[in-house]
Computed example of a mutant assay.
Amino acid sequence: MLEQEYKAANKKKYLLLLSTAVIIVVLGLFFTAIGMKQGVMQVLIAVKLYFAGTLEGSPDTNINKIILLLRLPRIALAILAGIGLAVAGVVMQSITRNDLVSPFTLGISSAAAFGASLCIVFGNTLFFQSEAGIVTCAFIACLLCVAVIYTVAQKLGITPTAIVLVGIALNYFFSALTATVEFFAKEHKLEDVVQWTFGTFNRASWEHVAFTGGVVIVCFLLLQRYGLELDVLASNDDDMAKSLGIQPGRLRTKIGITAVLITAAIISFTGVIGFVGLIAPHMARILIGNEHKFLIPFSGLLGALLLLLADTFGKYILYPVSIPVGIVISFLGVPLFIHLILSGGKKGLE
Score class of each variant (00 low, 15 high):
residue 336 L to A: 15
residue 237 D to R: 06
residue 176 A to E: 10
residue 96 T to Q: 03
residue 159 T to V: 12
residue 286 I to M: 15
residue 254 K to D: 02
residue 313 F to R: 04
residue 130 S to A: 11
residue 333 G to V: 07
residue 5 E to D: 11
residue 66 I to E: 01
residue 28 G to K: 00
residue 121 V to Y: 11
residue 202 N to F: 09
residue 239 D to Y: 07
residue 302 L to V: 14
residue 4 Q to D: 13
residue 4 Q to Y: 11
residue 317 I to H: 05
residue 245 G to T: 03
residue 149 I to W: 02
residue 21 A to V: 02
residue 298 F to Q: 04
residue 5 E to K: 12
residue 256 G to T: 06
residue 317 I to E: 08
residue 333 G to D: 05
residue 64 N to H: 14
residue 68 L to G: 02
residue 171 N to D: 10
residue 36 M to E: 15
residue 292 H to C: 07
residue 146 V to Y: 10
residue 148 V to P: 01
residue 241 A to P: 01
residue 43 V to L: 06
residue 143 L to R: 03
residue 248 P to L: 08
residue 53 G to Q: 06
residue 230 L to H: 05
residue 235 S to Q: 14
residue 343 S to V: 13
residue 4 Q to A: 12
residue 334 V to T: 15
residue 191 E to C: 02
residue 202 N to D: 13
residue 134 I to M: 11
residue 175 S to I: 08
residue 310 A to P: 03
residue 171 N to I: 08
residue 178 T to W: 00
residue 287 L to Y: 05
residue 110 S to M: 01
residue 173 F to S: 05
residue 41 M to F: 13
residue 88 A to L: 05
residue 68 L to Y: 03
residue 162 A to K: 07
residue 338 I to T: 13
residue 87 V to L: 07
residue 159 T to F: 11
residue 331 F to V: 14
residue 246 I to P: 03
residue 192 D to V: 05
residue 132 A to G: 14
residue 163 I to L: 15
residue 127 F to N: 09
residue 66 I to F: 01
residue 303 G to R: 03
residue 150 Y to A: 04
residue 315 K to H: 14
residue 157 G to P: 08
residue 96 T to E: 04
residue 321 V to A: 12
residue 232 V to P: 00
residue 34 I to P: 01
residue 5 E to L: 10
residue 218 V to Q: 06
residue 160 P to C: 09
residue 200 T to Y: 04
residue 319 Y to Q: 10
residue 350 E to P: 01
residue 278 L to I: 06
residue 135 V to Q: 09
residue 40 V to R: 06
residue 236 N to F: 06
residue 295 L to C: 12
residue 8 A to C: 06
residue 15 L to H: 04
residue 47 V to W: 01
residue 256 G to Y: 07
residue 123 G to C: 12
residue 297 P to S: 11
residue 278 L to C: 05
residue 42 Q to M: 10
residue 350 E to I: 12
residue 281 P to T: 10
residue 181 V to A: 04
residue 17 L to Y: 01
residue 45 I to W: 03
residue 146 V to E: 08
residue 257 I to W: 14
residue 45 I to K: 07
residue 28 G to F: 04
residue 266 I to W: 00
residue 192 D to P: 00
residue 333 G to N: 05
residue 243 S to G: 13
residue 70 L to A: 08
residue 91 V to N: 01
residue 340 L to S: 11
residue 185 A to T: 09
residue 183 F to M: 11
residue 221 L to T: 11
residue 111 A to M: 07
residue 225 R to S: 10
residue 215 V to T: 11
residue 85 L to P: 01
residue 187 E to D: 15
residue 114 F to G: 00
residue 148 V to E: 06
residue 344 G to Q: 11
residue 264 A to N: 04
residue 335 P to W: 12
residue 258 T to C: 13
residue 99 D to K: 05
residue 119 C to E: 10
residue 157 G to Q: 13
residue 43 V to D: 02
residue 40 V to W: 10
residue 206 W to T: 08
residue 140 I to P: 00
residue 322 S to T: 15
residue 272 V to Q: 02
residue 94 S to M: 00
residue 349 L to G: 14
